[in-house]
Write a protein that binds this DNA or RNA. Structure first.
Lengths: 316, 316
DNA sequence: CTGTTAGCGCATTCAC
DNA sequence: GTGAATGCGCTAACAG
């Protein structure tokens, strides 16, 4: 067994409470006593037992980040920022990944957060399908401040920080339109909130601009769509440029592409200009961290969606 | 406050210990009792407090992975594997990153492992310079099984799993030699164990093959080295193909490159063939996990270096 | 099979 | 300023 606060107290010839106070720099203990105890602790390599501390004061000084795969760049970028931000505030970021098997691991990881092991949690949610009644129960019993990042569960009241997709889609539309877009193909799946949000905003923009669109394209429907509307410069909108491979053969050479972040397509032969909306993950992470820290300070935070403008638009 | 085991016991009309046993599927409690209690727990959303469990039984069911940056592919790949492996064994992998500021964060993260918050720890060590007397003290007071991955602290007795650099360097030499290598330039820094290990093995191979080499190349020493030994096909050995940019102008076009993993160089104009040794990070992770699990089963593990053969050699 | 008792290592009351 | 007592929520050792 390692040293406890009692052992240290004996060595110092004082009471455990004094030692406890000294180690936590409680102003009530005399400078001399404090130094004596600090020296002794260092000498004997005393380290407090976090579990005991937590049990006594209910705090862990740990923030959990629940994410999918470390390989997914978007989540990783946020994780890197969060690690830095929380370190500056004296918290340790604990990263939990539910890859590669979200079906099994997402509920498991979530239920760990339930067990008072962190002071706050930042959540990358998987698809909507995961919001089962069981998951809901588990989420309900996580008692610490929580914030969703990037994606969230629609129908579960939690604050969320995500890119302002109104600005994002307007920006991408502007770029595509000035490049001659005369039709749009939307490759957004409906199974998570972000995709849906983007799709909605995009549809609004397209209607405003009177541009014909194809919303849920099976490859075989594309030629007819292009023909019917006499489209020569279609723009394909998606989350990532590799999301619509099956469609490429059906598209005219030089077609436009609008997507997110740094995902240039694998094979660019037939592609025309590519417009990318770069999300501001540092700002998103900062905002989320702030939301957690404010809750830790006792402030209430409404279960709202906090939009963060994109960092930039790039053209390739 | 959330429900405790006492509340549940009252609700069930039984003793807290019975509830505790029932929830942990202790075979001693009657099936009927167990079901009653399980149902009650589910109904009221009871969840155990991990800290209290740990404090009582000394186990956390958590394995910590201490790594540098999530952006570093080699560490990430291992992290992904470890997450999967430990999940299969009923453990939760907790990832702690000491990026972006190892000077401050490495000791901080390390000292957290000290606080009985995990049952085992897998460590990516930073450079040797971090093995200060203080770090040594902290390492000493981490009481759980530990294993180093990829790199390790030479001079600190911990088991480590890493690539078999004898095989790696021999393989790379074979490839380079059959491509006509008649001289070698070694770009391995001395500040971590892996680099040193690779360098040593490489030197052995080169001497065996009677190939002249330049061990610590300042760019201005390269031309003379090439001239003196009349070298026309030098091979540059390094960890990553972007480790020796300053040297490129001093090299003859078509020079050979030998490095590790998937790091193709940024600008390949002057480059000749590139030989890559692909490390087997899945196997490395599996081996490390096994070493931890065995220690958790009470087995003693010597502070040895366990070499894992590379997965493959690629030529580009 | 179940209840009783006694800690795990701290922080936090109170006293003094 | 410091000491003594109490409890955080749970598991374990011991009875029965």
């Amino acid at each position: 067994m390692s040293l406890t606060i009692h052992d240290l107290a004996k060595l110092a010839g004082r009471n455990p409470s004094t030692v406890s106070r000294a180690l936590r720099n409680d102003p009530r203990v005399r400078e001399a006593t404090r130094k004596q105890i600090a020296a002794l602790a260092a000498e004997h390599g005393y380290v407090p037992n976090l579990n005991a501390r937590n049990l006594a004061d209910g705090k862990t000084r740990i923030i959990a980040l629940l994410m999918g795969s470390l390989e997914f760049q978007v989540e990783r970028e946020a994780a890197v920022c969060l690690n830095e931000i929380f370190a500056e505030h004296g918290y340790t970021l604990m990263i939990l990944s539910y890859a590669p098997n979200a079906n099994e691991l997402y509920p498991a990881r979530l239920s760990i957060l339930t067990q008072k092991i962190c002071d706050g949690a930042i959540l990358f949610t998987p698809g909507d399908a995961f919001l089962t009644p069981e998951t809901r129960t588990v989420l309900d019993s996580i008692r610490c401040p929580r914030v969703c990042l990037d994606r969230w569960f629609s129908g579960y009241p939690l604050p969320a920080v995500t890119t302002d997709n109104a600005i994002a889609m307007r920006g991408l539309c502007d770029l595509a339109e000035s490049a001659g877009m005369d039709g749009a193909i939307l490759c957004y799946h409906a199974h998570n909130t972000v995709s849906r949000d983007r799709k909605e905003h995009l549809l609004r923009e397209l209607k405003l601009r009177d541009i014909p669109f194809l919303a849920s394209p099976a490859p075989e429907t594309v030629p007819r769509f292009l023909r019917e509307h006499a489209i020569r410069k279609p723009a394909v909108f998606s989350n990532g440029t590799n999301d619509f491979h099956p469609l490429v053969p059906a598209l005219p050479p030089g077609f436009l592409t609008a997507a997110f972040d740094h995902t240039l397509p694998d094979h660019r032969n037939a592609f025309g200009p590519i417009f990318l909306c770069i999300q501001d993950f540092r700002k998103i992470a900062e905002t989320a961290a702030d939301l957690i820290l404010r809750q830790l300070n006792g402030e209430r935070v409404a279960p709202q969606i906090v939009p963060v403008p994109p960092a930039a638009f790039h053209t390739f």
